[in-house]
């Protein structure tokens, strides 16, 4: 008797399948991947001011867009699509096979990672060409960017899977999830300069990961001199790391313990 394939092996195969399925939904592919670019185009055209010496709003906004790209692509898309898969019986069918839950989660994480890489490439490309966005030149900033993306997308994926428990049906999922994401974006300094928001809004946002991701991305895309204009007068890199890890642990815990394969 042959051995049952490992969870990682199956997870990678599921990742391939997830990407293939996603790529065939053409409207959704174009919209999802270009969404950050579209927002950058709108906001970049409306707000042409500089918010600090050498810092354009577009530059500030790119940091916010990358952070919310992580949240949209991971948390929002999974918390909406998983209940839809559950509704049509796809998850229950998978539950009845020897494929373990971890493989399903790994497959989702791969899909999110690939979709994120494409989104960022498009955002950087359009940002550079049309909106005068400047890319960081120091290696240390790219290292920060890399761990932020890795940790941020893991966190966002885990929380999306965990939150998929909440919507009762696939049809209602979008109505539950989208407002949360949009409100978080406003509160977390994606669309506006964070320090200009009311204090209570800032404090509320500081509970959730998006604020920290956004601030982290500012530390990558904005000059270090801008750190003095943050709430804590610094980038708070260590705190960002620990808060994201904490949310990752929360997300993984609920995904593993509470994931729902069936409607009832």
């Amino acid at each position: 008797m042959n051995k049952i394939p490992s969870a990682l092996n199956l997870g990678i195969r599921r990742g391939g399948l997830e990407i293939r399925q996603f790529a065939r939904q053409r409207e959704s592919v174009v919209f999802t991947l270009l969404f950050p670019v579209i927002l950058l185009a709108i906001f970049g055209s409306v707000f042409k001011d500089t918010i600090a010496p050498g810092v354009t709003f577009s530059q500030y906004f790119v940091a916010g867009m990358i952070a919310s790209g992580l949240v949209n692509t991971g948390f929002q898309s999974l918390a909406i699509t998983i209940p839809m898969e559950r509704d049509v019986g796809g998850l229950k069918r998978l539950r009845g096979t020897p494929m373990p839950a971890s493989s399903y989660f790994i497959g989702k994480a791969i899909l999110i990672a690939v979709s994120m890489i494409i989104q960022f490439a498009l955002l950087f490309g359009f940002g550079l060409l049309f909106f005068g966005v400047e890319m960081p030149t120091e290696l240390s900033k790219w290292l920060t960017f890399t761990w932020l993306v890795l940790l941020g997308s893991a966190c966002s994926t885990a929380l999306g899977i965990a939150f998929s428990i909440v919507p009762k049906s696939g049809r209602g999922a979008s109505a539950v999830v989208s407002p949360i994401v949009i409100i978080l974006q406003f509160f977390s300094g994606v669309f506006f300069v964070f320090t200009q928001l009311p204090t209570w809004m800032q404090q509320l946002a500081a509970i959730f990961p998006l604020k920290w991701l956004t601030q982290g991305m500012r530390s990558v895309f904005l000059p270090d001199s801008f750190a003095a204009q943050e709430v804590a007068k610094s980038w708070e890199t260590e705190r960002t790391f620990f808060i994201l890890v904490l949310w990752l642990v929360i997300g993984v815990f609920f995904s593993v313990r509470k994931f729902k394969w069936d409607r009832d």
Binding site: L17, R20, Q21, R24, Q25, E85, V88, G89, G90, L91, K92, R93, G96
Partner: peptide, 13 residues
């Protein structure tokens, strides 16, 4: 092996 009542998943495969 389990054949459930109705599944309408994976339409794009």
């Amino acid at each position: 092996g389990i054949v459930l009542q109705s599944a309408a998943d994976a339409g794009d495969l």
